[in-house]
Structures are given as C-alpha cells and as structure tokens.
C-alpha cells in the first residue's frame, strides 16, 4: 500500500517533469533548449519507471545528466514572469487567505506523517495534492493556468533543485565504496574514539569547516556524516535524528561565514549596492560562532 502510493506520487512528479521538458523544448529563445528538455525528460523517465528500469540504465542516464550539465546544456533560460496585474488583483481579493494552501500542506503532511502508518513521504504527497486542490478552488484557476504555473516553477528551479538528490546519491556511492570506513580509520589514528563530547565537537566543527570550504552544507552533509557523524557520534549511542538535524544546521553556521556561498553572502552585496564584499559575513560572524557553540552543546545533551 505504502509502496504503491509512493510509486503513484513519484509518477505524478515525473509527469510534472515531463511538462517541464516539453515546454523547455518549445522555449525557442533558450540556446540550450534541447539539452534542457532532455534533462527534464530523463528525470521524468527515472521518476515514473525507476522501479522497472535496470539500475545500470538509470546510472547511464545520470551520467548523461552530468555530461549535459558539464557542457552547459542545462539552462533555465528566459521564463515568463508572473503577470503582475493578475497577481495584484487576486492579492486584493484573497488577502491572507492566499496562505491557506501552504497551511494545508504543512498541517496535512504532519498529521498524515505522524498519525497514520503511511509514513512521512506519502504524507508529503498527500499534503501536496490536497494543498494544490485547495489552491485551485480558492483561485478558481483554469487547468491551463495550473499547467503553466507548474512548468514555470519547475523550470525556474531547474538543475539546482535536483542537486540534493544527486548529493544523496553520492552519499550512497561513498558508503558502497567504503569511504566512511577509510576516513574513520585515518582519523581514529589521530583522534580518540570513545569520547562522546569530542566526537560531537569533531562532527559539528567539521560540518562548519567543510561548508566554509565548499560553500554548500548539503554537500558537506553527505560527506561528513558518512565519515564522522556516524562513526564518532551515532555509533557511540547518539540519537540519529538529533545528530543529523543538528549536524546539518551546524553546517549552516559555516554558510554564514563563507564567500563561497554566493547566493547568500555575495548576492545581497550586489543587490543592496554595498561597497565591501565581506560586509554581510562580518555582520554574521559573531552570531555564527555563538550558534556553532550552541549546536555542540545541544547535540551533546540532546543526543545522549
């Protein structure tokens, strides 16, 4: 039951991706329209038929996505913006009710995920579909508009939106290749295992440091949790939910400190016409360090 529901939701997502693919092909002003369209269609195939296709074929398709991206053939291109006249008119009419579908999504996802045996993933699917229905009823949007908005927002999220799943895949490959075990062996030569507090310090600081270097906490999480989080904290009896939740946000403390996180620390410098490239980071530095210390203490006391 849970599995067939999940396959249903993955297929639904695959259909949305196919819409994005078709519309990307049709976007004549995008110089990379064939590559971009192919990218979305490959994803559509993987999401709809992922369980039927041999894994080796999917692996080949993923490598093709990598090649498309390498040769700059996946591009968002120019996407028509929201019609501001319509938006303003409905904003006036709906007021605060515009947030209703979002509230439905969050509440339904939590309730279904907590009080039914369907699990968190199916809950998100159920929540999303119900929220969309509420939004359609509320805005009385015609089918064509739902279609337009669906491919518009998917295409504008683009390849960046797929990055978390690709990083999760990397984590799986690291595990299969024994990277975690290797790093543990190397570190445990220099670092005492068996001390819970030091393990927590090592994990949180490593998350922040790797994020500073890479500019991306998601990427750091996939690497550092395999290499340090599991062997040095979870294996010593740490609650995995606590360790993982706080491990990720310990990485965000690093995001606050790094010019590598251009979207957050450099983009505002340009947007707000500031003079100093480091201004935003300077304002965040003190809070970031305080929060990192809080992460360490909180993880230590909550996880054990």
């Amino acid at each position: 039951m849970v599995n067939s529901l999940l396959i249903f939701f993955y297929s639904l997502l695959g259909v949305c991706m196919a819409f994005a693919g078709i519309e990307s092909f049709k976007a004549k002003d995008n110089p990379a329209r064939y590559g971009t369209g192919l990218f979305w269609l490959i994803l559509a195939v993987i999401f709809i038929f992922g369980d039927l296709l041999p894994a080796v074929v999917v692996g080949g398709l993923v490598v093709i996505i990598g090649l498309l991206s390498l040769f700059k053939q996946i591009q968002v291109g120019h996407i028509k913006d929201v019609d501001s006249a319509t938006a303003a008119q409905f904003a006036k009419k709906l007021g605060g009710w515009i947030f209703l579908p979002s509230v439905v999504l969050a509440v339904v996802s939590i309730i279904v995920g907590t009080f039914t045996p369907l699990g968190g993933q199916v809950a998100i699917g159920v929540g999303s579909v119900l929220a969309l229905i509420v939004a359609i009823v509320e805005t009385k949007a015609p089918v064509k508009m739902v279609y337009t908005d669906t491919h518009r927002i998917l295409r504008s999220v683009g390849a960046v939106g797929m990055l978390p799943q690709i990083l999760a895949m990397l984590g799986t490959v690291f595990t299969a290749a024994g990277v975690g075990t290797l790093v543990t062996k190397m570190i445990s030569g220099a670092f005492p295992t068996g001390n819970r507090f030091l393990g927590v310090v090592l994990y949180c600081v490593a998350m922040a440091l790797f994020t500073i270097i890479m500019g991306n906490a998601f990427a750091a999480f996939a690497v550092i949790t395999v290499a340090i989080g599991i062997p040095f904290v979870v294996s010593q009896g740490g609650n995995p939910a606590v360790v993982a939740a706080l491990g990720m946000t310990a990485g965000y403390c690093g995001t606050l400190l790094t010019p590598m996180a251009a979207n957050f620390n450099s983009l505002p410098v340009a947007l707000l016409e500031m003079d100093d490239q480091w201004s935003v980071i300077k304002q965040q530095a003190l809070v970031s360090v305080i929060l990192l210390v809080c992460h360490i203490l909180l993880m230590y006391f909550l996880a054990f």
Partner: peptide, 13 residues
C-alpha cells in the same frame, strides 16, 4: 518538487 505546483499557483495569484 511536488509542493511546487501549488506554490507556483499561489505565486501567480
């Protein structure tokens, strides 16, 4: 991604 069609729709409204 499944939450996006709804967000897209309320964004345009």
């Amino acid at each position: 991604f499944l939450t996006l069609p709804m967000i897209g729709l309320i964004e345009s409204h």
